[in-house]
Amino acid sequence: MTLATDGMTNDSAATGAFAGVSGGEVRDYVALLKPRVMSLVVFTALVGMVVAPGTVHPVIAFASLLAIAVGAGASGCLNMWWDADIDAVMTRTRARPIPAGRVPAGEALTFGLVLSALSVFVLGVVANWFAAGFLAFTIFFYAVVYSMWLKRWTAQNIVIGGAAGAFPPMIGEAVVTGTVGWPTFALFAIIFLWTPPHFWALALLKSGDYARAGVPMLPNVAGPDATRRQILLYTLILAPAALAPVALGTGGLAYLLVAVITGAAMVILAFNVHRHREGEAAARAAQQLFAFSILYLFLLFATLLAEHAFGLYAAVPGIGR
């Protein structure tokens, strides 16, 4: 039997609130890995692999993606372990395995640490140690820099912490080439700039939740109007930045078309969020931006994947490879 207080320092664990015999179902341990985040990480890392200058054996690519996925899951698990006290008071997260009492916190910590070490080791052996080191750094950045340090300290938490979610394309390139270059740095920049408008749109809708949990999200610290201004500013930078792959020759005509159309839609939705500040219209605008931002990122990366993996790449005149 493992006690939940093993190695814990945050409040919920210190009081032993989630202590107990392990009684979780297998699906609870799967939930600790944040499967939806994992799928996004796998997808963006795969795109990083296909746009990288070089090739990799499909078996090595598959095994590397598996290691990256497990690494992402491990960091999600460590995040849930650390944030169990916050999750317990937020409606969106209180049914998670640790606050719901289905998995003892100490077990989640062990699970996260073991999977972190395993994923880094497997990626190092299967691909190369630069990629493995990058994965280890990403896990550290998400679990320690974002979760333990930034999240409860500054309203810029998701701006800086967003880097952790933006690294996977670069890890994907590192698997193929053993290094990183501009094409995947551009993909990093897109995800990095996409994160604030995406999460602040959600924070506008869930500001009561974050206030109850004491998390200094921008709407709670600077107010909803300042948040709307920041969302618009980031979106105005994001839309043109999403054209960087075209300038670098990574994105072709299809990507250019998708980036321009969906980028314009993002800007319109961000303007809507900025304009509608009261009542139902304000909530609807934030909801629409949040939902579309997911589709936006998916379409950008799916187009790059289609261009490179399925031979749909057609160079933009005067720019192409």
């Binding site: 039997m1 015999v21 392990s22 009684g23 979780g24 179902e25 297998v26 341990y29």
Partner: peptide, 18 residues
């Protein structure tokens, strides 16, 4: 020591199989 209920044993077995 710790005596597991039938449900806890079932879950433990499921975790071991996984």
């Amino acid at each position: 020591g710790v005596v597991l209920t039938a449900e806890e044993k079932r879950r433990q077995r499921a975790r071991s199989v996984a």
